[in-house]
Design a protein around this nucleic acid. Structure first.
Lengths: 344, 344
DNA sequence: CGCACGCGTCAAAACCTTTTGATGGGATCG
DNA sequence: CGATCCCATCAAAAGGTTTTGACGCGTGCG
């Protein structure tokens, strides 16, 4: 290496010396907080450019108390999940939050760990928590630390937090159930997920309310997200060979919905004629299945955009909103629920 | 709010006062750099817990010169791309880097902007640059700043940088061309992308080398990634209605490959009998098309895993490797190139 | 002519850590 | 008993920035 690139970083002091001004003058030149004469400014700018000066971000945020960075925590640690369904959800969520942040030129940090003292904590001005659990410990911790918080989907135990974006499950899930009924379904069973988050809770609630409203006998089965494909298949097979089996199932995850379709074929049940299948989240599984599976798309992109906007507004000092921003999930009607052949 | 949560953050000084020890003793208690007696340690730990002390990350990294964070820059600003193809690529890449970093409990920062002085720079110990352009300006800047750098895919103008992960296009693309030839293709045209990155360069080079090796007349057409679907369609239509039109096309992006299939149908060309189609990147477009399109999968997950591992090794002080880590892309043979009906 | 004020600049404080040389006391060894 | 060493702790420096009170000088106004 040439002697050109020395190990030591160039600091504001180096610039000041070279421009023959004080340190504070250099700072003011960049911040514009105090007026600087034209001549001095030019000298400082020239010196800074020649030296390749770049303010040390740690020193800056130590002083100002702000880092210009926003944290992101994904609650179900999708990362450890190995199913393609969850990977797609994770990727879409992370990708769209990142896209939104990049567009606004604010740095985004994936927070590795909040509790573990062995893991260095990160300098963030605020934190977005996506898909918190009920009474989520990460939310608790962030509240304790006074870190401005925005949640994507609510913490079901903290409906009072107004800085949140949430999906309107009530309308969408009712719409889906209405559709199944219209298509002739009589015994709709819900295969719900086991994680305690808004998605599972609200869809379940809506299902029960809808059943009550329509005098439909509510029937739910637990199909934990953590099941392997094989265990899920075994369990599904059992659930479909029961007396008075359902003629329509709404499955939480779309990979399990695809398995339902597969098992149905195995059992010589035609989809949708003998069994309709719908999923409460959309992914390539539902789209590539034969027949393609009706699904509720969780609008991750819209959730992310609204969440980021909310966070930046909050950091900019906006007033506390009255309540969460509400986004409508999109229903994607496909062949797995259309007995009439797709007129809709 | 109760007076419990005061605005001021609790610092190491508060802990020291409460535990009636010096500041340095508190620091040593946590770092373990110097021995601390059992009694004192307990007192300090208790005080810290009661106060909810958390070291200020900025102050820490100012002092130590390390932040424990790794930056990530995606080079083609996929973010501004609106095609689903690019969104999927972006999501997969970002998602798998994030997954890999979370698994290792190191914070990851999406770097919003490196050149723009108006955008605050970020505290990172190293930076991963994915899919750099030839002579990439971001790479230049990072080298100038002495930031430890790892690239995912090489900067084509800087083949000498050993801290890199790259794909072995030579084998994969040759394999794809061999396959087309086996299936009876005689006039293979390459529809290449316009961006100057390793993917476009290396695939083009391999194509030309392969043509030379087999006495095949090389024919390439530029199909810029930035074209809208409509403009791409127009251009593709023209390219397929030329005298002595190709009987196989290898298309850079999979969304354009899907358009090729569509136009072929429009022109009454059967795929693959009259025209074979393959893509140099895989996405839902290629999988959902009818017929499904043969594609080269860019193994983003493997690239990400290797890139992250390389970065952490570098930060941990590993020796400079001899050369880039090489990953093999996966060929996904599908109906769009199988005249023999899928025996492979 | 005297006073107030605005402008451009400077010096110093503050932000919170980690690191390191120094210190004092007790144990160990010759 | 004196010299040596180790252990636990402390005080102070250093890291690079932003912010703010102060200062000197010229200008405008009464």
């Amino acid at each position: 290496m040439g002697g050109r690139t020395s190990k030591r970083k160039v600091t504001i002091r180096d610039v000041a010396e070279r421009a023959e001004v004080s340190i504070s003058t250099v700072s003011h030149t960049f911040s514009g907080l105090r007026p600087i004469s034209r001549a001095t400014r030019d000298r400082v700018l020239k010196a800074a450019a020649e030296l390749g000066y770049e303010a040390n971000p740690s020193a800056r945020s130590l002083r100002t108390g702000r880092s210009g960075l926003v944290g992101l925590v994904l609650r179900p640690r999708f990362a450890v999940a190995h199913t393609r369904d969850r990977a797609e959800t994770f990727n879409r969520l992370v990708g769209s939050v990142a896209t939104e942040m990049l567009r606004r030129k604010v740095g985004l940090i994936h927070v590795p760990e909040l509790d573990d003292p062995a893991v260095a904590s990160v300098p963030m001005d605020g934190c977005i928590v996506a898909h918190p659990y009920g009474g989520d410990s990460v939310v608790t911790e962030l509240l304790r630390r006074n870190v401005p918080l925005v949640t994507i989907e609510e913490d079901p135990e903290r409906p009072e937090l107004p800085w949140a974006v949430r999906l309107d499950y009530s309308t969408a899930v009712s719409g889906l159930l209405d559709h199944l009924r219209e298509q002739g379904a009589d015994r709709v069973t819900l295969f719900t997920g086991g994680e305690d988050n808004a998605w599972n809770r609200r869809t379940r609630e809506t299902y029960h309310a809808w059943c009550e409203r329509h005098g439909h006998r509510a029937r739910t089965e637990l199909l934990s997200e953590s099941l392997s494909a094989d265990s899920a298949a075994t369990r599904i097979r059992r659930l479909l060979t029961v007396p008075r089996r359902p003629d329509a199932v709404v499955v939480a995850t779309s990979d399990f919905a695809a398995i339902v379709v597969q098992i149905a074929r195995e059992l010589d049940l035609r989809v949708p004629e003998d069994l309709m299948v719908a999923a409460l989240t959309d992914s390539e599984h539902s789209r590539l299945s034969t027949p393609p599976i009706t699904a509720m798309d969780l609008s991750h992109e819209q959730l992310a955009a609204a969440g980021v906007e909310l966070m930046l507004a909050r950091l900019a000092g906006a007033a506390t909103p009255d309540g969460p921003v509400v986004i409508g999930p999109d229903l994607r009607f496909r062949a797995s629920t259309r007995r009439d052949g797709g007129a809709r």
